[in-house]
Design a protein around this nucleic acid. Structure first.
Lengths: 248, 248
DNA sequence: AAGTGGTCTAGACCACTCG
DNA sequence: GAGTGGTCTAGACCACTTC
């Protein structure tokens, strides 16, 4: 028989450490509890601080821990389920987004391609944020070509949230013919990071939505969700809005 | 007026480095091209190798780079769109999954809770992998309680892919009443990592699907997609392309 | 055997929060 | 000002791929 060499592979220290810590979190800690600081933990496990941090980073990525500079490391609550299932224009009554601002700017190339607009054209760019349980979970930029909101009063428009709401209202005059979503991993840009109360580069789930109306792509939304705290739910087909079939 | 201190914040080196590299990738490199090795790059930018690696890690996370031990760092192709929109039992004709194996094992606690089974019960556990363009993109474990496939021949069943296909076939006898999806960030377990040709701990998008039939949760699937190479698409409502289970 | 990325160390300093 | 996590360094060795 073959000398299979099965698992002679030395497991990296940080990987083993992560497993040990993960079990400790399950058994010896409760949500919100603070862990010993990194220097103490590293000493306790007999590893360098950088190695310990590699384990902590993974646990934070998995939503098990929460680390805040100047404060400490705490046990994170379970991830929040946030729904992305709504089939409607943004700003329709019932959604949980809050308009923050609205500016004019050229779109990123990827967005410009989806909209089929001239890359040099300025678009209405609506900033919205989404919170649940008082915590910010997502920051969004909604790109609306001028052609999609032809009746928008041009010059005398106000700024800030008021202007954002006007653009959303105008958008809703169009008949929504379909929409389209994609999810991918990204890292937070500086402005998104600030809205989400995270450091730049923090891992985020980027949800790109295309809204179709009048036979073309009428708007594109790029929403970045905190990957550490969020689980995105898609109330698929079948009986929509299955809340909780769990027996009490 | 307030001395606002606006942006006195020193940008971290690795963050700036990432920006510079990102622009260089856009202008001076093409897909598949190999970058100089990490020691050279670090020297060229006048930083420690660890700092350079921090920038490379982020770019890999964003799907811009691909790194392989013993080989080098190459410019990654754009992410692949993979659809998760199918409304049907797993294994229905037309899906792109390939059954690999089927074992009996107790489910993870989270899965057990969704199924409402006794945590000590053994479930049929079907292993499948999904490939596109010859590359593995996802590994799945499908958990099927014995109660969901009552007519499954018990003892004399074969093993491997054949057994997996039998379980899938039995499952399709049930009428699918609904399904439910959630997406979150995770890190690859050792077994998934092997199937996905990545190292353990690699970032993955975890898609959890609940299948409802006979008034309860009849099966649960946990699929882990390579976060570096995949964009998950959800062909939402509007014009939906629901593939209904074919009446056999 | 040579060259690559992956892991690990033992330090240092910085930015932030809080009492 | 004390304590925390975040950044950075300059090394070392290991696992893997390729020639």
């Amino acid at each position: 028989m073959g000398t299979t060499q099965l698992e002679t592979v030395p497991e990296p220290k940080y990987w083993h450490l992560k497993t040990v810590l993960s079990q400790a979190l399950d058994s010896d800690f409760s949500v919100g509890e603070v862990l010993p600081n990194e220097r103490d933990l590293a000493a306790r496990f007999g590893v360098a601080r950088a190695t310990l941090r590699q384990a902590l980073e993974q646990l934070e990525l998995e939503g098990r821990l929460q680390r805040r500079r100047g404060v400490g490391t705490t046990v994170a609550p379970p991830r929040v389920d946030v729904s992305t299932a709504q089939y409607a224009w943004p700003g329709t009554s019932g959604d949980t987004w809050q308009p923050v601002d609205c500016t004019s700017a050229v779109a990123p190339v990827a967005v410009g391609r989806m909209l089929g607009t001239d890359p040099r054209d300025e678009l209405h760019t609506v900033r919205r944020i989404r919170t649940t349980h008082g915590q910010p979970v997502a920051a969004e930029l909604l790109y609306v070509p001028a052609a999609s909101v032809p009746q928008l009063p041009a010059a005398e428009a106000p700024s800030g949230p008021a202007r954002a709401r006007i653009v959303l209202r105008e958008l809703q005059r169009l008949g929504l013919e379909g929409q389209d979503r994609a999810v991918e991993l990204g890292s937070a840009r500086a402005d998104d990071a600030r809205e989400l109360d995270r450091l730049p580069g923090a891992p985020v789930l980027v949800v790109t939505t295309r809204y179709f109306a009048a036979g073309r792509t009428a708007a594109v939304s790029v929403a970045t969700y905190r990957a550490d705290t969020c689980r995105l739910t898609f109330g698929d087909s079948g009986d929509l809005e299955i809340t909780h079939p769990a027996p009490a």
